[in-house]
């Protein structure tokens, strides 16, 4: 399988997302074609500054995807996913905006004719991952954390409030899944960086809920979610749950070594829970 991949700004420096994604894709023969010369999608900032600019920053990639000959665009970051989809939706519905965007891109030497489908890496791996054949991780209980922007506002990939796709994924690849109610609760997102005190509670709520329901590990699908939940545990003594990426668990299920998957980069170490069984 070949996919057109948009990493986003946080991918490379995140706690092993890049390493594990690349390792898993190698193992599964998925060719990751990174968009050459990608830029920042604008995240949650740019739409509050200037709609046309926000749309164009995102649409620049749509033009690039087009020259690469792909129909879909895959990203592993919820914020990128939501932002690119938002731009795609606006372009699809607003003819005037579409024309203006085309114009700006044209001035930059790019042509935009069609809008690709924006997909999340989770969807891709959901299709590509084989079912588990080993019971090695059967006793490792995982809590799936989706964050806000994977299922909202579209509610297309799954239900908006209690999605199940990640639970299905984890169960299929051989982990014990703990259901909980914090799946799509807000972690504070970018506000957590500067409103630390005010947002700390949001992350703690999530961690506490997942721990309460008996999980030993949290898994996420987004660099910012991972960062917020991971760093929130560096300052207090509450249950300390390693916050992994779903690609890291997928790598383990495929028999890859933890180091290969960048698991050493977590702030809350996963060594204990992973070596115990």
């Amino acid at each position: 399988m070949k996919i057109c991949f948009y990493p986003g700004c946080s991918f490379a420096t995140s706690a092993g997302y890049k390493e594990s994604t690349e390792a898993v894709c190698r193992k599964l023969n998925i060719e990751l074609n990174e968009i050459p010369d990608w830029n920042c999608c604008g995240a949650t900032v740019m739409f509050g500054e200037n709609k046309l600019r926000a749309t164009t920053l995102a649409a620049r990639h749509f033009a690039l995807v087009q020259t690469m000959g792909f129909e879909d665009l895959v990203t592993g970051c919820n914020a990128c996913y939501a932002t690119l989809r938002k731009a795609a939706r606006l372009l699809d519905r607003d003819r005037e905006l579409f024309q203006k965007t085309q114009e700006v891109l044209h001035n930059l030497g790019l042509e935009l004719d069609r809008i690709p489908k924006v997909r999340h890496l989770l969807e891709v791996l959901m299709e590509a991952m084989p079912d588990s054949t080993s019971d090695k991780y059967k006793t490792l209980s995982v809590g799936a954390y989706y964050g806000c922007q994977l299922t909202r506002p579209d509610q297309e990939l799954d239900k908006g409030w209690y999605p199940e796709i990640l639970e299905h994924f984890l169960a299929r690849i051989g982990f014990s899944v703990k259901e909980h109610s914090a799946r799509t609760q807000c972690c504070g997102a970018s506000h957590a960086v500067i409103y630390k005190n005010e947002c700390q509670g949001l992350s703690h709520r999530i961690i506490r809920e997942i721990a309460n329901k008996g999980a030993q590990v949290i898994t996420t699908v987004c660099p910012l979610c991972q960062f917020n939940l991971d760093q929130a545990q560096t300052q207090n003594n509450e249950p300390r749950l390693p916050v992994t990426y779903f690609t890291q668990l997928a790598g383990l299920a495929l028999g890859l070594a933890p180091a290969e998957l960048g698991l050493n980069k977590l702030l809350v170490s996963a060594d204990k829970v992973l070596t115990r069984p």
Partner: peptide, 21 residues
């Protein structure tokens, strides 16, 4: 924070988050 919780629940389907932007 762009969590879109308000937007998917609004009983009048007002795009609250989009309006905040």
């Amino acid at each position: 924070v762009s969590c879109y919780a308000c937007m998917v629940r609004c009983p009048r389907e007002i795009p609250v988050t989009d309006l905040m932007y």
